[in-house]
Design a protein around this nucleic acid. Sequence first.
DNA 1: AGGAGTCAGTTTCGATTTTCAACCAACCGC
DNA 2: GCGGTTGGTTGAAAATCGAAACTGACTCCT
Lengths: 155, 155
Amino acid sequence: MRTQPAVECSIQRTLDLIGDRWTLLILRDLFRGVRRFSRIQEDLGIAKNLLTDRLGTLVDAGIVEKVPYQERPVRHEYRLTEKGRALSPSLLALMRWGDRYVSGGLAPTELVHDECDTRLELQPWCTTCNVPVAPTDISSRPGPGRHIGTEDTRV
Amino acid sequence: MRTQPAVECSIQRTLDLIGDRWTLLILRDLFRGVRRFSRIQEDLGIAKNLLTDRLGTLVDAGIVEKVPYQERPVRHEYRLTEKGRALSPSLLALMRWGDRYVSGGLAPTELVHDECDTRLELQPWCTTCNVPVAPTDISSRPGPGRHIGTEDTRV
DNA sequence: AGGAGTCAGTTTCGATTTTCAACCAACCGC
DNA sequence: GCGGTTGGTTGAAAATCGAAACTGACTCCT
């Protein structure tokens, strides 16, 4: 995995952890309830050694835990921890984008607002102004940490 | 890139397009206002041939467009299209997760609302009612597409 | 006009990763 | 004992990546 000296950005840190070609798909399967090694392997078509490796990384990172679901023979399944479940907005956001821009508007599964029964979007939301914020009204700036660059950061 | 017969899932389709080790970081740079080939290259430390390749893929996919910012010599920069800008919730979600679970609650870089200069959160948003929706007011249902699996999909 | 510099790449080639297939071990049911 | 399932490991071939050298169009400087 890439190593960068003192990475300043949470996106980069996140992607260093789960941003390879398979990991987010593995997590998607876990969200969908596909939790066993062999089921994930056949569902994704991933090579077994890679699946072993990726699951190990996820377990080490505390995103997934390996829990026995039977004794004799001991068999394990992989379950999302709270940390892993917290990735659901990320996966949802990727799904919604794919629904709209790659799958041609078709949504295999959708989340709906109870009251009006229409589909939900994920929106950046300003808790101060209490309004949704368009990408063009977003800037990035250094947080409590150090500053990175000084150029125009508007989209 | 991986090819699967008739992929049913928008997450997979999305990741097939932008789910490699560099593309989301390139997009992050574009969101941050780093738009020139050489600036992206030095910022990420990506090999130039790979950057050429990834930017080409993004342009082909209509996520990014190559626009000249000067003549003589012709120089281009890469700008997000509307399709590309629509990925902001995904990147924001990944960033917020990283802030909390990888960066130890600290946000090295934060996205702020231009108008009021405060940090943004991601909220499920109902476009019909025009309100943010709490998790308790959300249901899921199969969309217009086909169903994928029938097992327990609870986390 | 000559020389140095910048930007955006392309080419080359060795190193790393991924894939594919075979093998393995523990256990089960028959 | 025999075949089957689960959850892996091992090793070789193929694909991908990374670092550095090179290119070409054009600047600016003198």
